[in-house]
Design a protein around this nucleic acid. Structure first.
Length: 426
RNA sequence: GGAGAGGUGUCCGAGUGGUUUAAGGAGCACGCCUGGAAAGCGUGUGUGUGGGGAUACCUGCACCGAGGGUUCGAAUCCCUCCCUCUCCGCCA
């Protein structure tokens, strides 16, 4: 979240950012926040004054009693003050609760380099790589290719769970496993520490990374107050919640392979055909905690890593710089990578790399200082970033469509051969 | 799931209603000492938020797992929840 004092002192900039992000509801929250903040600050001064008086007198009572003197009169006089303190404390608590809730509703500011735009149509194509493949035959979409060979079974997924839960089988399943090892090996070599996080998180974690409040509808909520993770960003970023990191250890880089669960309510049509949009999918994620002055360097680095995978796999892609209107609530800057799907003649988003700056770190109460928790000096903010490298189903879709032969077999790009052990998926 | 014990600062650890502004120790930092170091001695050492002087200064308030309550006053008493440990049960 944004720092309350920052909001107070830069209200115009915050207002502007909210409207650039096309989040009108947040404007109302901001106005409420400023009102509550004003009342809260006034009340708190009054309260603290009375608390100080109460504390002093309570101490005096103790002293009188120790000396054997009669404290009855003072204690009686204290009752009224004490009631007043209690009343003010109740009010203060209520205002603090409101403040906390409202603060969670104010979105992050876009970075200065983010272009203005009202919607996804205004995103900027920052680069394109690779030639879209051409075919001597009509390329088929992945759902035809993969179901024909039994690599994925949508119908059995419907039976077992419901729509959007495809079942990978045989060669399809091995492809998933190969990609998992391929991505993780490369990321480990790039200095990312591999972790296997929980697939369910509590509300505190979901709040810290920004899924709550308001976006609970996008997650599956299970019993005991847990949520299935929509991305491993949530559990992995929360690893350092409530911690003071050592500046010397930054940047801290993690990678994780996990399934991701998304309700995707309201999606329909060609968007959800085949593997385009499913409720459960695998993804390898990168997460980074770094010094503020390095975070935009890190954003480029992480984006390059994700692009490197697509280049190694020989898949045509483009990088989009997201405009203000398509930035998420927590994000200051974001790149999306879209891979070309020849069988569908459209772009598919396979990666999203974002810099949250200090926004998540503030919700996480993660900060840094030389020497870490036992170190000296003031704590400093850290920046958090995350990015997919890559989302599996769409990458698989683009891969089989790109490398399909007329007979429906699929050539295996060089990078994956050592992991699959074959040059062609028959 | 049942029974019991327990959660105190970076760590260990005292503390069952009032000189605790959280004892003491360890660690860490700085200083003294030393040829240099160790030992020794001294000083300092949390987070958050507000006020004042506004670099390293002073000061209010809150925080002893979390949240409520009792009281003039709560780490200490009561309630709810979370977590850890031991034993039992169940179990991949």
């Amino acid at each position: 979240m944004l720092d309350l004092r920052f909001i107070r002192e830069n209200t115009a900039a915050v207002r502007r950012a909210i409207s650039d992000k096309q989040m009108p509801d947040a404007l109302e929250k901001l106005d409420q926040l400023l009102l509550v903040d004003e009342e809260h600050r006034l009340l708190k001064r009054d309260l603290e004054e009375k608390q100080a008086e109460r504390n002093a007198n309570a101490r005096l009572v103790g002293q009188l009693k120790r000396e054997g003197a009669d404290a009855g009169e003072l204690m009686a006089a204290m009752a009224a003050l004490s009631d007043e303190v209690k009343r003010l404390e109740d009010r203060e608590r209520s205002l603090q609760t409101q403040l906390d809730a409202l603060l969670l509703e104010v979105p992050n500011l876009p970075h200065a380099s983010v272009p203005y735009g009202e919607s996804e149509h205004d995103n900027v194509v920052a680069k394109e790589w690779g030639a879209k493949p051409t075919f001597a035959f009509e390329p088929r979409p992945h759902w035809e290719l993969m179901t024909a060979r039994g690599w994925v079974d949508f119908e059995v997924g419907v039976k077992v769970t419901g729509a959007g839960f495809p079942v990978f089988k045989g060669t399809g399943s091995r492809l998933v496993r190969a990609m998992r090892n391929y991505f993780l090996d490369r990321l480990a070599a790039a200095g990312y520490l591999e972790v296997v996080p929980p697939l369910m998180v509590n509300a505190a974690s979901a709040t810290a990374t920004g899924q709550l409040p308001d976006k609970e509808g996008q997650m599956y909520e299970v019993t005991d107050g847990f949520f299935l993770i929509p991305t491993s960003e949530v559990p992995v970023t929360n690893v350092h919640r409530d911690e003071i990191l050592a500046v010397e250890e930054l940047p801290i880089k993690y990678t994780a392979f996990t399934p991701c669960f998304r309700r995707e309510a309201g999606s329909h049509g060609k968007d959800v055909r085949g593997l385009n949009r499913v409720h459960q999918f695998d993804k390898v994620e990168m997460v980074q905690f770094c010094a503020p002055e390095r975070s935009y360097e890190a954003l480029e680095e992480m984006t390059r890593i994700a692009e490197g995978f697509l280049e190694e796999l020989g898949l045509a892609y483009r990088r989009l710089l997201m405009c203000t209107g398509d930035l998420g609530f927590t994000q200051a800057k974001k790149y999306d990578l879209e891979v070309w799907s020849p069988g569908q003649a459209r772009w598919l988003e396979v990666s999203s790399v974002s810099n949250m700056e200090a926004f998540q770190a503030s919700r996480l109460r993660t900060r840094a200082r030389p020497g870490g928790v036992t170190g000296k000096g003031k704590t400093e903010p850290v920046h958090t970033l995350n990015g997919s490298a890559l989302a599996f189903p769409r990458t698989i879709a683009a891969l089989v469509e790109t490398y399909q032969d007329a007979d429906g077999a699929v050539r295996v790009p060089e990078a994956l051969r050592e992991y699959l052990g074959v040059a062609r998926l028959e």
